[in-house]
Design a protein around this nucleic acid. Structure first.
Lengths: 343, 343
DNA sequence: TTCTGCTGAGAAAGCGTTTTCTCGGTTCGT
DNA sequence: ACGAACCGAGAAAACGCTTTCTCAGCAGAA
């Protein structure tokens, strides 16, 4: 005769009944409130153990007005970058007893705002990676999402923390590196059009071009995954560039694979650089020169900002910029002496 | 004068007030109950839109006894296999309006049961990847976790769906493949001790040995990541084996990287095989021979089983076995003619 | 006209907690 | 020894929603 509640699960009422006290007292005991008589407390605890009682989190959430859960919106769960952010976030949040709810927008920008709103209502806060959303829309929904932490986006509202990787600086460093190796004809294999982080890279390249008027930089359409890089082989070869700046490591890997199939030697004929320094970058052949982003740290940092927001501490620096670190490996080398790459 | 509720957010009461009806009617309208007068319904909808009212999911969950959320426990969010399962699960669940809550047990087996219980209480069901938990413990907690879908584990309870990859068959196929290439000295770079999927591989190898008495199979300690493979180079070379079965693709990649550093040629001197066919496997150099597991499908399947459980359909087949498919690429080749690999 | 049957909407009872409010019973001070 | 301060625990309200219950109000049938 244990199952009382309609749901079939045992609730606080069962424990109260068994211990011969009121719901309130059981609640007090379960929450470590010391204003309860030790004998009674012991009796309640014994009853709770015997019944294997575990408070229903939904009921608690309603009463407490908090869920101990945060949400994260990512554009693509297949992308190692977001996997790493998720990992860092989840790990750090778990340490403080929070869980994370995920929402994958599948790179469709119209979903981002809806998912963000839904996720936010179920959680105590939201981490938003929404590279495709327009600035206007972001600006509009951001206030309603508070507590909110932005990744690779900024907003005019100053109280919203924002962690952004300085892709512009990173791509400049990579370009400088290639130029230092003697390359004068570069190509940028761009990311998804409209992506915020792609925009930052373009700004960086513009700055680079301004300071290096004699270096030729060709812009090539691309994307963010393996296949994009693989398919770009023809365009890359046609460009005549000897130094290729790929949007990210995935694209670089796809490109290198395609070049390999064509018999083009990297880096002897063409140098290739990636971006992000995903774990696999050091295991490609040749190992990939890239700009390292401390991406799991970024996830952890996102949690720390979020925690401060939730606890209303508000003392942390709202905006943090991550400087990528140049990671020179074997996929970049001196410009080849032959006039054009082997085909 | 809109903010009524203590939480500051607008609730059903605000809408009711504004539309001049009762809470009940607002609820009916919001849930598409047609027993409400069209005029009133329109008035309510207008009020809801004007106030930007969105029902509080926690309140709904409490009333409805469901959260529209499922949980997943994974041993390591850094492992591409679980990332893929998570992705497949999340994607499929989202299609049916469900979200997923993640719990990372960080490969510590004692956490698995606790996390599973906690996650389960917050959700409508649980997908459990708990390779380290003992059979006894699994058996004990499984009933309390229902609806539950197991990945790569089985339980005596027949009504619990279980999706398991036939690692035993896969590893046998890989071994056969190597033997077919002339290898007679193999080595198995094992996974984490106590891991369920490692156990399945060992069983497969035992069967293989029984049917191939003349083939020598050395067992080597290992793990599940890059570094494990990389560190195993010495042991691998010392074993004298010419065909190496790595626990998974990550280990294989680490090993190949280590062998490359030592000047050992793959596959000329030593053949290496992986397991899982992670996306990167086709971009390594040489490309990796492996056993392909339709891992994202597995995540989707997990959702379908879960959905059947939640809807109490119970008609789906409770146990599904996935047969890995041999994916022969360039990291495996004929055994070398020289007596021992270059060092 | 009166009674039955039906419709549509408000009142109220949950869902499972936490927390405030209240009050009987002690204890302390004088 | 009597009132004040206090302490511990039960009653009840609150959290935000859904759903059953209930009952006006009205249409149709006898």
């Amino acid at each position: 005769m244990v199952r009382r509640s309609a749901t079939g699960r045992i609730g606080i009422a069962d424990v109260a009944l068994k211990a011969g006290v009121s719901h309130a007292t059981v609640s007090r005991v379960m929450n470590g409130n010391f204003t309860v008589d030790p004998d009674i407390a012991a009796r309640v605890r014994a009853a709770a153990v015997e019944l294997k009682y575990q408070p229903n989190p939904v009921g608690r959430s309603l009463a407490l007005g908090k869920t101990d859960t945060i949400g994260i919106v990512v554009p693509d769960l297949a992308n190692p970058t977001f996997q790493a952010i998720l990992r860092g976030l989840s790990r750090a949040a778990a340490q403080d007893g929070y869980r994370v709810l995920i929402a994958d927008s599948f790179e469709v920008s119209s979903e981002e705002a809806i998912l963000a709103g839904e996720a936010r209502r179920r959680c105590d806060g939201l981490v938003l990676c929404a590279p495709r959303m327009s600035d206007a829309e972001l600006e509009e929904i951001a206030p309603s999402l508070h507590p909110l932490v932005l990744i690779n986006r900024t907003t005019a509202a100053p109280e919203i923390p924002s962690l952004v990787v300085d892709y512009g600086q990173g791509v400049q460093a990579l370009a400088e590196h290639l130029v230092g190796l003697g390359h004068t004809r570069l190509a940028f294999l761009a990311g998804p059009a409209g992506s915020a982080s792609n925009g930052l890279r373009l700004e960086g390249l513009a700055a680079f071009k301004a300071s290096h008027p004699r270096v030729d930089v060709t812009m090539l359409d691309g994307g963010s995954d393996f296949d994009t890089g693989h398919e770009a082989v023809d365009a890359v070869l046609a460009s005549g560039a000897t130094g290729i700046l790929a949007f990210n490591d995935l694209v670089a890997m796809g490109l290198m694979s395609g070049l390999h199939e064509r018999g083009v030697n990297v880096p002897a004929d063409i140098s290739v650089t990636g971006f992000d320094d995903i774990p696999f970058a050091r295991y490609t052949t040749p190992t990939l020169t890239t700009a390292a982003v401390p991406i799991a740290d970024l996830g952890a940092q996102a949690w720390h900002q979020m925690r401060a927001l939730i606890r209303q501490e508000g003392l942390e620096t709202p905006g943090t910029r991550y400087q990528p670190r140049l990671e020179i490996r074997a996929s970049s080398g001196p410009v080849s002496t032959s006039t054009s790459p082997a085909r």
